[in-house]
Design a protein around this nucleic acid. Structure first.
Lengths: 336, 336
DNA sequence: GAATGATATCGAAGCGCTTCGATTCCGGTT
DNA sequence: AACCGGAATCGAAGCGCTTCGATATCATTC
């Protein structure tokens, strides 16, 4: 283990000078800087993380709390985690991986032990129990997702309201008059992250604005459930020609069922998905979709965390605008 | 920030006593222990991670290096990462997430800064450049995957040789006489992790032992490539009735192509996959498969890392035995 | 040419913990 | 009654770094 003292000796300066070369907190002559940097390279010096954390009260670590086992959206979670890690390195920060099942105890541990400078929480629920702890310990934090009460919180998420609206617009522009939103399961709308509810709001508002007839159905995502939902939709609204799907597992059933019922996509029926690009590209036909901007969310989360650490307490809600990519599953309504 | 001194004051003992209560390195009277623990609870004390690392030369952090963007096997990587994190907590360790693209510099940084006690490396290549650095810095490390030279290294991986053999056995037991292995792309066999080559070895050996005619083909995984491979196989060996697939992206094409060519699975042709359970279950028909034991690999990696830190330098290769699960894609050969 | 203000560097204190003697207080031996 | 060894506790040193004065040097200014 090479210490700052050894570097100082090798460079012929005092340890504090080496520290200032590294931190740039005081001016250092060009000459000294070169000598110190040469010594650092020669010895392969890396500051001891613990010592640095102890003395400076900064660990240069960001904690990232991810859901332990969410069969939903694993690739999205992974993408966010990787984006956070990569972006963090830009700020010379490392990332500590925590699982959400550590719960409030995990947050307390991080806050109390000074092992991380800030926490980034994923999979935020409407009434997330980590939030009170975050407030109480006043730990710098960024949430990926929107809780019910965002007072004094920094959050990053896709603007699901605008997403719902964008999907409606896309279908409306193509001449569709009757559309349906196939959403997540009932439970998700209550308990969970609220993204589903926000999508629904945007969907309904914009449909009203554009004069479309619009229905919404929750869906468990199984083949059977999707079949039931679809049957009811066509029963009530036989003229439905546009579908918006916000339920990864319902996509494949929906496409098969439409095919089976003799409705060609996109000739007879258009489908717009809200899902990761990967999923949209794997489907056949490839889906027109609004993607989940995982990378951008990860990056923004880190930036907001760093801003908080730098004392710029903006406490903003950052809602990323949706981007709809037109692919093969949507087209102008027949005779439209 | 509550310190050990405050706990000591509250409990009416000296700081060192509190430390010994926590570390159990010296005997403490039952009475004192209770008082100290009460004080800890009352104050919500958590030892300062940096201070502890500095004084004890142990950070209680495990570094985990994951591939940054591997479109292959994202769920497996995620599962391993989660298993590592969960298991690490059992040993009171935290996990620091690094991306493989930090390369040898990343390893040097971890080794030099004492930020982690050990490194767990995923996505190990045959001739991985991180290995020399690991040796040179003598950093405790566990590799998930097998490099070419495993001298003095601790590695954990699925026993792919036995996996190849197990797939052959399964097909042989069902009466198949001519089988084919559809593998990864050419490049993977050379450059990469060697798991492909090991599977091939086991496949060929066992096929010979059981007197089966066996062919092996590399495959890029696209629909076109899979079609070409399949055509060549049936041209050379029209009697082929059993397929082993070790290429996630070739699975769907293979199944469609077999269906198109009028070969029913499993009535006419059996398919055995080497893939995560998730993939095997999503396919239709659900695939007989050898799963990738992601959880177990993660858990074992942590255990070996901890063993090294405790001075039990076993430096073992841990090859996990394959488990083949029979599902709907394999059956006794017609008339067998 | 003495006072002034930057600029560059040093020295020492201190961050919160662990750990190594040293010390105290026992009951049990001789 | 003096001694011993073990159990329980304390005190202080020190881990490697940052940071805050203090100091030294030098170019400006009147």
């Amino acid at each position: 283990m090479v210490t700052i003292a050894e570097v100082a000796r090798q460079a012929g300066v005092s340890p504090s000078t080496v520290s200032y070369v590294l931190s740039r907190k005081r001016s250092i002559s060009e000459d000294t800087r070169r000598k110190v940097e040469a010594a650092i390279d020669a010895l392969g010096y890396h500051p001891h993380a613990g010592a640095r954390a102890l003395a400076s009260n900064r660990s240069n670590i960001l904690a990232l709390m991810v859901p332990l086992r969410s069969d939903m959206y694993v690739p999205v979670i992974m993408e966010i985690a990787m984006a956070v890690t990569t972006e963090a390195r830009e700020y010379d920060q490392d990332v500590l991986l925590l699982t959400k099942d550590e719960g409030t105890g995990g947050v307390r541990r991080i806050a109390g032990s000074g092992i991380a400078d800030a926490i980034i929480c994923m999979d935020v629920e409407l009434d997330d129990d980590r939030i009170p702890v975050l407030r109480e310990t006043s730990t710098p934090a960024v949430l990926i997702g929107l809780p019910a009460d965002t007072d004094n919180l920094t959050c990053v998420d896709l603007d699901f309201d605008a997403t719902g609206a964008a999907c409606v617009d896309h279908l409306a522009d193509l001449g569709h008059k009757e559309i349906a939103l196939i959403g997540e399961s009932e439970a998700v709308y209550r308990r969970h992250t609220g993204f589903a509810a926000r999508t629904l709001t945007g969907f309904q508002r914009r449909a009203a604005e554009r004069g479309l007839r619009a229905v919404h159905r929750t869906c468990e995502g199984t083949y059977e459930s999707t079949a039931g939902v679809l049957a009811r939709i066509f029963e009530e609204r036989p003229g439905t020609t546009g579908f918006i799907v916000q339920n990864e597992s319902a996509i494949t059933p929906l496409l098969s069922l439409l095919r089976l019922s003799g409705r060609a996509v996109p000739e007879d029926t258009s489908v717009v998905a809200i899902c990761p690009d990967q999923v949209a590209l794997q489907s056949s036909p490839r889906l027109t979709s609004v993607s989940i901007p995982a990378q951008e969310m990860g990056r923004q989360a880190v930036r907001h965390a760093m801003a908080q650490l730098d004392g710029n307490h903006h406490h903003t809600l950052t809602l990323l605008p949706p981007h709809l990519t037109t692919r093969e599953s949507s087209a102008a309504v027949a005779g439209g």
